[in-house]
Nucleic acid binder design. Structure first.
Lengths: 202, 202
DNA sequence: ACCTGAACACCGTTCAAGT
DNA sequence: ACCTGAACACCGTTCAAGT
């Protein structure tokens, strides 16, 4: 058998990504395999390799779409609030909520590892950087006395913190630590850090 | 072939764990497989299943040993300092250094996922809880006006933050965010948070 | 030109059968 | 009693050959 031409390259690509996302959201990273994706779209495994370099490439494409959804949510949230402090806090809550709602997708973004020594492509790194920028610009009006470099550092610290809460919450390790509300914890982390950061000059 | 009796059950167990740890530290989680471990110790794959429930069980045992090493390092660090603030800050740096030195082992602890719906056994959760306790008790003398519950929450927030920095640093996502020193970032996170937490009453 | 089918080199896990 | 060897049901990736 061979030659079908039912779908264009782009259509196959889109079908494959949709099928893969369905597998991931239902069963997580372990539930994803090239063979299952191929079966789900009615093509042979070989066909996937005409459209993606390999499974890592496919995963990178899924992750790009996840990061886009997350970024959209954060932008919407920023549009909803005017008070600078409120904006920043809501950004944190949006991040946590997203991780909670799309747990498997969120995990795939941050826990997928490329083969030893390989770096994600530039366009992917850009999507991560964009998220940090959002935090930075939201932080600026709250710390007008600080240098751009200090703000960059603070945004990174703040976002690492929120990210860490997400990770530990998802892997259920915060229950162990006796935390009952993840959103309260996030609020505590952000507001205390900000009080420390804004309130003094060293 | 069959029956060799060269090694006791416990010896096989120890040999397997050592071989597995060697694989992980050299190549990360992806480099680990039951077949490779068996080959490395000169037994058949089947033999591994006489000593471990399955690969997840083997990984849990490796992770337990990693958590023990980390805990030891943290205890040593606490013994080296008297000033409460210094103790807490050094705890953070120790955590980061450990993750930096034993990256693959550290990743295996926090990124290995049990099959959907399965929880780590109680003895494992205990080892994680023990780490949070260390932070809690180090935090206490710095915030004498706070309730035990507030201190618990603060320890969780603080440790989530340090943990988040570790994760992002290991996955190289902090370079993207324009951070040059991970230890500086950790210091900034902890000291600003503590200033906020200690300095005020709400 | 487009896709398949089969191959290759791997997996985790089980268990009847050999010594 | 202890361990093997072979089987089963999966993997990712490649590529000659069919239409």
């Amino acid at each position: 058998m061979a030659r079908r031409n039912d779908h264009s390259r782009d259509e196959i690509r889109e079908m494959a990504l949709a099928a893969a996302e369905k597998l991931v959201s239902a069963q997580g990273a372990k539930g994803l395999s090239a063979r299952k994706v191929a079966a789900a779209i009615g093509y042979t495994v070989g066909t996937l390799y005409l459209v993606f370099d390999n499974l890592d490439d496919l995963i990178l494409q899924i992750n790009a779409r996840t990061l886009d959804r997350l970024h959209d949510r954060m932008l919407e949230e920023l549009a909803r609030h005017k008070d600078p402090m409120e904006r920043l806090l809501q950004l944190g809550h949006t991040y946590i909520s997203f991780a909670d709602e799309e747990t498997h997708h969120w995990e795939l973004v941050f826990e997928h590892r490329l083969p030893e020594g390989q770096q994600p492509p530039e366009w992917f790194r850009e999507k991560v950087a964009r998220m940090f920028s959002l935090v930075e610009t939201s932080l600026e009006p709250l710390a007008t006395t600080r240098s751009p470099d200090e703000i960059k550092q603070a945004a990174a610290a703040l976002w690492s913190g929120v990210h860490g809460i997400c990770i530990l919450a998802i892997s259920k390790q915060l229950d162990v630590a006796g935390v009952d509300s993840v959103q309260d914890l996030t609020h505590s982390l952000m507001s205390n850090y900000l009080r420390g950061f804004v309130g003094s000059n060293r």
